[in-house]
Every structure is written in structure tokens, then in C-alpha cells.
Amino acid sequence: MSAIHFFEKGKGQPLVLIHGFCETSRMWTDFAEELSTDFRVICPDLPGIGDSPIAGDQISLEEVAVSLEEWMDENQIKNPIVVGHSLGGYVTLALLELMGSRLKAVGLFHSSAFADAADKKETRNRAIVFLKKHGVDKFVTSFVPPLFPEDKSEELKAEIERAIEDGKRSSLDGLVAFTGAMRDRKERIDVLKNFSGPKLLIAGTEDGAVKIEASRAQKDAFTHYVELEGVGHMGMVEKKEETINLIREFARAQL
């Protein structure tokens, strides 16, 4: 029996939404509400995050993909459209490599099929040291605000505070494990290119975590590519209605 905790809403074509790092399934609450009129929307907590347990502080994206495949089988989630934000996008690509044509379509939200560069790997290593020394609350409080554009920090103050509180629902083992998993992930651009189904990338021109140059460099691997002008790493918050509609239109086209 899978230990993956999730919530779902609606009926019909399965649409799986996978949260990012320092986030939980709750980030998709408004998306699930609005998209459930057309789809069976299913939002899992990744291992060690929210209400899903994890054994230890090490995990690979390949292991996560196997867990999600088992979870899908147990819950009759067949031929899903899978959309992931940031870390959730990396998980989506690992799932795509494992399941291939058993996925109807995939979407990446502020994410990348490329592996970490050397400087990014070092940043991940420093994050692990910080987490182990200072704990979840202090890490999340410092990590989350820079995901939003600095010039919108006052305008989005309430949203940033909610994101911080959501991030604090991650376990220490979970955050350490996924920091290492992101650091060690392999490039999956060929996996993406070889998938014949629909593929969506939503990018932000002001994204500090996944630079717009990296998004543009992988643009040709996608069938659908959208840039959100002036948006940082949290387009689903900064442009909620617009991005809900983007996901709805992309998913409806697969029905």
C-alpha cells in the first residue's frame, strides 16, 4: 500500500498536479477547485512533505517516480496528464522516463529538463548544511521570499506568508532528501524530446531559480511554450487565474 498522501476533486480525465520544493499539495487548492469542473484533479504530497512519510534523508527522483507509479496503480489513475512545479517538474520527467506513453501529456511549471550546473550543485550542498544546522522553519523563511520578484514583495506579502507557512509543513528529512535528489538528478532533455505526447513549459521572465535563458534553451523540446512577462518562480501564485486557464486549455486539448 502506497504511503503517498493526496487529495482529489472532480471526475473524468486524471490531471495530476505535483508541488515543488518547500511546497505541499495544498498549493494547488485553488487550481483543483477550478479545474475539477473538467477533470479529476489529484494532488499528492511527495515523500517527507506535508502528510507523506519518508524513511531517512536520502531519496532519488527515480525512487520517487516508482512510488508515484505504484500510487497511481492503486488509485486507478490511468493515462494521466501530469503537471509539476519546479521540483515537481523534475519528478514529472522522472515519471515520464519510467512510464512513457502511459502518460497522456506532461507540463512543467518553472522547471527544467537540464541537470544542475556545478555552481547550482554547490548551492544545494550549502542548503543541506544550513538545513541540518538551523532546521526547517528558519530555512523555509529564508528560502521562499526570493522565489517571488523583489519588486512585488509588498504587493504579494500575504501570498508569500502563506507560501512560507505551507513550506514549513515539510519535514527536515524530506527537505534534505529532495535537495540531494535535485542536486544529483540527471539531464532528461532526450526523454522529453522522445515523448510524442503534448508537452507544456510555463516560464517566468524574472525567474531567479530557473533562469529564462534555460527555459528558452529547451523551448524546442516542448509542443507548447509560454513565457509570463515579469513573473518570478511562482507563476501559479503571481498569475493564478492566467495559469489556471493555461493548464485548463492545455489539458482540454487532450480530451
Rank of each mutant, 00 (worst) to 15 (best):
E122L: 14
A94H: 09
D51R: 13
H233K: 03
A3S: 15
E23Q: 15
F39P: 07
K138H: 10
S215H: 12
Q58F: 10
W71P: 03
A163S: 15
L17S: 08
L93E: 01
G197V: 09
E70S: 14
G235V: 04
W71D: 02
Q13I: 10
L35I: 08
H19Y: 00
K186W: 00
D119F: 12
L255W: 10
A118E: 15
P149F: 01
T223A: 09
I128E: 12
S112C: 05
E187S: 15
I189W: 04
S52M: 10
F195D: 06
A209K: 10
D30E: 15
L15P: 04
N245E: 15
V191Y: 03
A251P: 07
K152E: 11
N75D: 04
D151G: 01
F6W: 14
E122Y: 11
S170R: 02
V83P: 00
K120D: 13
K78D: 14
S196D: 13
K133D: 11
E97R: 15
G10P: 03
G208T: 13
R102W: 04
G89I: 00
K186L: 10
V83D: 02
D166C: 02
F7S: 13
H224F: 07
S36W: 07
Q218Y: 03
C43R: 02
E23K: 05
I49Q: 12
D220I: 08
L98D: 07
A203F: 03
P14H: 06
C22F: 03
P80H: 09
D45R: 06
S196N: 14
G84A: 00
G180L: 05
A251G: 06
P14K: 03
L68Q: 07
K199I: 08
P44K: 06
G204N: 09
F250K: 10
K11F: 04
H85T: 02
H224Y: 10
E122S: 13
D151S: 11
F148N: 06
A55N: 14
L147K: 09
E242M: 09
K199N: 12
